[in-house]
Computed example of a mutant assay.
Amino acid sequence: MPLNSEARSLLDLMDAVGAPPLDSLPPVAARDARAEFAAPILERCHETVDLDADGVPVRLYRPAPADEVPGLLLWFHGGGWVLGDIASHDNICHALARRAGHAVLSVAYGLAPERPFPAALDDCIQATRWAHEHAGELGVDADRIAIGGDSAGANLATVVCHSDPPPLVFQVLVYPLTDARMTTASYDENGEGYFLTASSMRWFLDHYLSGDDGAADDPRVSPMLAADDVLSSDPPALVITAGFDPLRDEGIAYANRLADLGVATHHVHFPGQIHGFFSMPHHLGDARAALALAAQSLADALAQRDPPPA
Results as ranks from 00 to 15, higher is better:
residue 145 I to W: 01
residue 146 A to I: 09
residue 146 A to M: 13
residue 149 G to E: 11
residue 149 G to T: 11
residue 150 D to R: 09
residue 151 S to H: 10
residue 153 G to R: 05
residue 155 N to E: 05
residue 156 L to P: 00
residue 156 L to S: 06
residue 158 T to E: 08
residue 158 T to S: 07
residue 158 T to Y: 05
residue 159 V to K: 02
residue 161 C to F: 08
residue 162 H to I: 10
residue 166 P to W: 09
residue 166 P to S: 05
residue 169 V to C: 14
residue 169 V to D: 09
residue 172 V to A: 14
residue 172 V to K: 01
residue 174 V to G: 03
residue 175 Y to L: 07
residue 179 D to L: 15
residue 179 D to I: 08
residue 179 D to Y: 00
residue 180 A to N: 00
residue 181 R to L: 08
residue 181 R to M: 03
residue 182 M to G: 07
residue 184 T to L: 09
residue 184 T to Q: 10
residue 185 A to K: 11
residue 190 N to L: 13
residue 191 G to A: 15
residue 192 E to N: 11
residue 192 E to A: 14
residue 192 E to Y: 10
residue 192 E to Q: 13
residue 194 Y to G: 02
residue 196 L to K: 09
residue 197 T to S: 13
residue 197 T to Q: 02
residue 198 A to R: 07
residue 199 S to K: 12
residue 199 S to G: 10
residue 200 S to M: 12
residue 200 S to N: 10
residue 201 M to A: 08
residue 201 M to D: 07
residue 203 W to Y: 14
residue 208 Y to C: 00
residue 208 Y to T: 02
residue 209 L to P: 03
residue 210 S to Y: 08
residue 211 G to V: 02
residue 212 D to V: 01
residue 212 D to W: 06
residue 213 D to K: 02
residue 214 G to W: 01
residue 217 D to I: 02
residue 219 P to W: 13
residue 220 R to P: 15
residue 220 R to G: 01
residue 221 V to A: 00
residue 222 S to R: 04
residue 224 M to N: 07
residue 224 M to I: 15
residue 225 L to C: 11
residue 225 L to V: 04
residue 227 A to W: 03
residue 228 D to T: 05
